[in-house]
Nucleic acid binder design. Sequence first.
RNA 1: GCGGGGGUCGCCCAGCCUGGUCAACGGCGCGAGGCUUAGGACCUCGUCCCCUAGGGGUUCGUGGGUUCGAAUCCCACCCCCCGCACCA
Length: 943
Amino acid sequence: MSTREKYWLKVWSEKRAFEPDPVEGKKKVFATVPFPYMNAAVHVGTAFTAARVEFYARFKRLQGYNVLFPWAWHWTGKTIVGMSQRLKQGDPVVRRAFIEIDGVPREEVEKFVDPEYLASYYTKVSRQVMKDTGFSIDWRREFRTVDPAFRKFVEWQYLHLRELGYVVQGTHPVVWCPFDKSPTGDHDRMEGEGVSPEEFNLIKFHLGEFALVAATLRPETVYGATNVWVNPDAEYSEARVDNELWVVSSAALTKLSEQKHDVVPVRSFKGSDLVGMFAMAPLTGKSLPILPGKFVDSSLATGVVYSVPAHAPYDLMALRDIQEGRVPVGRQVKEIADKIVPIPILTVKGYSQVPADDAVKRLGVTDSLDPRLEAATEEVYSAEFHGGILSQSSGPLAGLTVVEAKAKALELIAKTERLSKMFELPERVVCRCGTRCYVKILENQWFLNYSDQAWKAKARLVVDRAKVFPEGAREWFYSTIEWLNDWPCARRSGMGTKLPWDKDWIVETLSDSTIYMAYYSISKFVNLEKIGPDNLTTGALDYILLGKGNPANVAKAAGTTEKRLKDIRAEFSYWYPVDLRNSAKELIPNHLTFYAFHHAALFPEKLWPRGFGINGMILVEGKKMSKTKGNFVTWRGALEKYGADPFRLALALTADGMDDADWRDRSAQDAKGKVESVVPFVKKSLKAATARETDALDHWLVSSVHRRILTATEAMEEMKIRRASATIFLDLWNDVRYYIHRTEKPRKQTLVDVFSAWVRMMSPFTPFMAEELNHELGGKGLVCQADWPSTKDFPLDERAELAEAVMNRVIEDARNVLKVVKGPRTTLNIYVCSDQAKSFFYELAAAKRKDENVGLVIKKFAALKVQPGRILKLSYEIGDEMLTKLLSNRGFDEFRTLSDASGFMSKELGIKVVVQRAGAKDIRDPANKARDALPTKPGFFLE
RNA sequence: GCGGGGGUCGCCCAGCCUGGUCAACGGCGCGAGGCUUAGGACCUCGUCCCCUAGGGGUUCGUGGGUUCGAAUCCCACCCCCCGCACCA
C-alpha cells in the first residue's frame, strides 16, 4: 500500500467519516451486501458485488444523505467445520487451496484444524483488505453470526416465525450419509451430483406366506409380467417388515428401516435359492416363475424386479440369454423359461407388438449385459410414455394412456394391499467423506413453509413495493416465490444458533441470515458493551424491533435501562428499512427471496426492503473463476497488483445489469493508466489556461458537463455503475480534451469549475486520487464529504451545443469531400445558406413536424434552384433532435459560427477555409455551389 | 425439462422500453501522422465494401411479418450463459 493511501485512510478514520449515527431530520440511506462466508479468502467477485454498494454509498453521501454501509461475517453452517475436518484428515487439495490460492502462511494453516480459528483468520484478513481498498464501511457494527448476542437475535426471529405458523415440522426423504449422519447436498458429494431420491413402487408377489417384493417405476406394465428376476449371486433375506414377511435383497433391509419401516431380519440366503420357485402376481393372479438375471442390481431398491419382455429390453435379453443357452440354468428352469413368450400390453406408433424387440434389433444388442441396453430402454420408455395406449391384454387399464394407466394400476394394486413404496437413488451417490449414501426419511424436520400461499402473496408484495435494479431481475423474484417449496431450516451439525424450542437442531445458514440487517442497529451497542446477550431477551427485542411493550418494564425485566432500550429502538427506527441490498444474481433464488419472505412475515410494511440491486457473476479473462482451474483472483491479490483506486475503477467499469463481469488484467492495467494520468492532466491543463471572458466554447463545455452530471446521476440512482463511471471517466474527460483541443486558449475559471465538479464525481470510484486532486485544486475539507455537483451550476446552452454540432457536421462533410476528390487543392470555399433558404427550410421542418403536406414548401425552394431531393433527404437525415434545436433557436447564426471556426476548421482539415454567405454579392463561386446551400449543410467548392 | 438473462461492425460493449438523429456511442486492438534522442505516455485522423464533389451498397443470431421507414415492434426458430433446493 502506498503512503498516500495510508495517509487518506488515516484521515478518513480520524474524521470518523463513515461512522454515521442517527441525525434527526436528516434523510438516510441504509445500503447492504450479503455478508461473505468465512471459509476462504474474499475474491474479486466479492469485491465486485460489494464495490457496487460502496460506490452507491459514497455517491449518496455526496448527495447529502446520512449513509450507513455496515459489514458482518457469516460463520454459520458446516462448510467451515467440514474444511477443518478435511484438513485434519490430511486432504492435500484443501491444504493447497489454503496455502497457494488464499496465500495463508503455513504456520497458520496448521491451526486451521480448529474451525473457529480458520474462520477468525479469514475474517481478519478479509476485514483488512476491505479497509485497504478504502471501503466506506462503519466497522463499529461488525459482527459474526456465531456471536452470542446475534444468536439471541436469531432465536427471537425463530420464536416469532414459529408463533406465526411459518415454522412447521415435516417428514421428507433426503440423500443421507450414514457416516456424517447428515443429509448430503450436491456440493458435498464426491459422486452423483444432481441425483435426487425417486419413489419406487414396491409390488408384492405372493411366495407362500412371504411377499416377494419387486420394485418398479412402471406399474402400468404389471399385466405384461411373465416372470420375476433376482440376481442369483446376490444375498437376499427373509425379514419381518411392518409385520409382514418379506423377501428382498439384504441390502434393501437397511434402507427400508431408514424409511420408516419396521424391519426385523430373519435369515439370509443366495438369490439362486429363489430360482425356480413361483410367485403370484397381483391383479392377474398369475403364477410367475423366478428366474436368474445377472443384470439385476441387488443394491438398487429391493433387488427384485418383475419381467416385462415385450416392453423392457433388459427383460427381453435376459430371457433370451436363458432360452438361447447363453446363461446356463438347470433343465427344469430352462423348460419353464422356454415356454415364456412376451405379452404385449400396449401399442405405440412406429413400433411392432413387441417394441423392446424393435429397439434391441435396431441397436444390435447381443445379450443382457450389453451396455447398449441403456439406450434401448430409454428409447422404448420415452416412446411408450408419450404415445402408448394400453391394449385389451391389460384388462381394466385398456384404452388408457401410460400416464393414466400408471395411476390406475397403482390404485388397483393398492386395493389388494400389495403395494408399498420406497425411495431410492437412481444413481450412485458418494459423500465427500467417501461413504456411499442412501435415502433416509427424516422425521420431525423443521421447515420454513414457503409453500404457504398467503405467505407467498405477502412476499410478492414485498417485491412489488421495492425497486429492483435492473428491472429485468424482478420477474426472477416472482418466479422464485412461485416455485419455492418448504425449506428445511435446521440441521444437526455445524456452527450456528440452536432452535430455542428444540436444541437438537441448529438454524441452517440461509435461514439465519434473512433479517440480520436489522441487527446492525443493535450490534453497535453490543460492540460498545452497552448491552449484552443476556439483556437481549425476547421482550427487549420485541421493543427494539417492533416497538412492543412498555420500555420501562421491558428494561427492568431484561436487566438494562429504559434509556438504553430507547436509544437502540431509535437507532433501529432511524436506519430501517434497508434501502438497498445488492448481491450477485445467484442469490435471487434463495437468499434474496428468503429475505423478502421473512420481512413480509415479521415486519410491518413500512420496514420492508426498499431496493434490490442485482449484478452478474465474475469471470476471469472470460472464463468462470475457479480454484481448480487456476484462474482464481483474490481480492488481496488484485488490490496489491493494481492499487486501490485502479482496482476500484476497473471493477466499476466492468459490467452493468445482470451481465457477467469479466475481470481482465488488461482492463485493470488500463484503469491504472487512467487513474494515474488524471492529476497530471489537470495540472497541465490548468497551466495552459488563461484568464478571459467566456465564449461560446466555454458555454459548450459547461453545457456538456450539465449533461454528464445528469447522465451519471441518473445512472447511479439506478445502480448502473458502469454507465455512471464511464460517463465520468471517459465521456466527461473527452469533453474536456475536446475543449482544450478546440479552443485557442482554455479559460482558467471554466476549467477550475469543471475540474471541481469532476473530482467530486470521481471520488466515489477513486477516492484516494480524488482526495489528492481535491487537495491540489485547493479544495477545502474532504472530497468524500463534499457535495455532488449540481446541474444548476452548469447551465445548459443549446445554442452553443448547436453551434458545435453544426460545425462538426460541416467538418465531417468536408472531410468526405476531401477524401473523395483527388487532385491538388489549396482552398475550401464554404457557402452558408441564405436567409431565405433557411426560412424555407424551417417552414418545411415545421410542416413536417405537424404532418402537413410539404409539397408547397418544396415548390418555394424551386425558386432558389435547390434540388428538391436534397431538401427532403436533409430533413430526414438531420434528425429530430437537431431539428428541434434548430427550430427553437431560430436566431442561430450559422455564418457567424462557421466564420469564427474557420481557423479551427482549417487546422483540422489541413486546408485554407473561406466561409462565405450564399446569395451575398461578389462572392467567389465559380462552380455555382452556393445555390445548394441549406442549413447545417453548406455548399462546398474546392480549388 | 422448468425458470431467468442474453446473442450488435476484430474484441468488450452502448442503443432496443418511447421505430426515422444508426454504418450504428464509448473503450480495447490495429493502421497513419504529430510529439519525443528512443521507448512509453499523450494528441489528431482512419479502421464493413465501393466511389475524382459531400454519394451508393450490404450489415445489428436466423427466417418471416407490421410500417413510407426496424438493431429497435410482432411471430417462429437456432445458439450461449445462469439457477433448479437440506447448500454457501
